[in-house]
């Protein structure tokens, strides 16, 4: 193709694109309010964050470009960041998959119940997610003195002799954070699974029965799971988001910063640098790293789920 031809075809494409855009101007009008707010408060912050991650910025002075220095410091010079990464990966590796599988199993078991009590069961399992500020309750349950429920019962039944400082002893803090995070982890993914199970047509199950599906396990594997692929993807996105962003549980139960940074996570590290020390460039680098990891993890899981049932 000659240059002139190439230019002409480019021009024609641009012309068609413009016509397409003009034809859909009402669409853009409808989209505009959302798009403006979304760009301003969801897209722009990510881009700004990536930009500032290459600078030294303390809010008072203008940002100064320092290249990859923040990232280099993060990996080579910041021991606490490495603790935070270790904790975050541990929390994500446990609460992510377990929370995800748990959400599916509970949804599936609830679906096995008679219709009349399903709604109540859904409420019981989903209530922790709706109720929001419940950290107070957990901090009383795991309170370090003998009035803490967990301590009281453990002493009562003779498992331990003296109350344990569950929330300030570095040996136990992570376990508590993980348990509470799991308790909170059913979320929107769980509702999606509950709903997804309702949509699988009954004749597929009937056909399965005729074809020799003998029990509920075979039915789960051969009929239910392949039908739920898209819900499983949605649930995966939710699980990744929750498990990598653990911060509230740690800060509310173990304090901020926690003893010996034992329950420090990437997000609490980010809050420390962003809101306490005002090292915005460094905090932005942390945010960028976290975001990149979540994005890759999401891509990887989507790829894996595509293979389901094939």
């Amino acid at each position: 193709m000659s240059y002139a031809n190439w230019r002409a075809s480019k021009k024609r494409q641009a012309h068609f694109l413009w016509k397409d855009i003009k034809e859909h101007r009402t669409c853009y009008l409808f989209l505009a309010p959302y798009a403006i707010v979304f760009t301003l408060f969801f897209i722009a912050p990510v881009l700004v964050s990536i930009g500032y991650s290459f600078t030294y910025f303390n809010v008072l002075q203008p940002a100064r470009f320092i290249g990859f220095q923040n990232y280099i410091n993060l990996i080579l010079a910041d021991d606490i960041f490495l603790t935070a990464v270790k904790n975050t990966f541990l929390i994500a590796a446990i609460t992510g998959p377990i929370g995800y599988i748990m959400a599916f199993i509970f949804a599936w078991l609830i679906h096995e119940l008679p219709r009349s009590i399903r709604a109540i069961a859904v409420l019981v399992f989903y209530a922790p997610t709706i109720s929001g500020q419940v950290y107070l309750i957990w901090s009383i349950i795991f309170s370090g003195d003998a009035y803490g429920y967990f301590n009281a019962y453990m002493v009562e039944f003779g498992f331990i002799d003296n109350p344990i400082l569950w929330l300030t002893d570095p040996r136990y803090m992570m376990i508590i954070v993980i348990v509470v995070q799991l308790w909170l982890s059913l979320g929107a993914g769980f509702l999606s699974f509950i709903a997804g199970l309702n949509t699988i047509p009954a004749d597929q199950y009937e056909a399965g029965y005729v074809d020799g599906v003998r029990n509920r396990w075979q039915e789960l594997w051969y009929i239910t799971l392949p039908n739920m692929k898209s819900m499983l993807m949605f649930g995966a996105v939710m699980a990744i988001s929750q498990s990598f962003n653990t911060a509230d549980v740690s800060m509310n139960l173990c304090g901020f910063p926690s003893t010996d940074y034992a329950a420090h996570t990437v997000v609490t590290h980010l809050i420390d640098y962003g809101s306490t020390r005002f090292e915005m460039g460094y905090a932005s680098a942390i945010a960028t790293v976290l975001f990149a990891v979540m994005y890759l993890c999401n891509k990887f899981i989507q790829r894996a789920l595509m293979r389901l049932g094939t």
Binding site: F41, F42, I240, V267, L270
Partner: peptide, 9 residues
């Protein structure tokens, strides 16, 4: 996947 903290600053 965003949470408030990541975009807060």
């Amino acid at each position: 996947m965003f949470t408030g903290y990541v975009t807060q600053i």
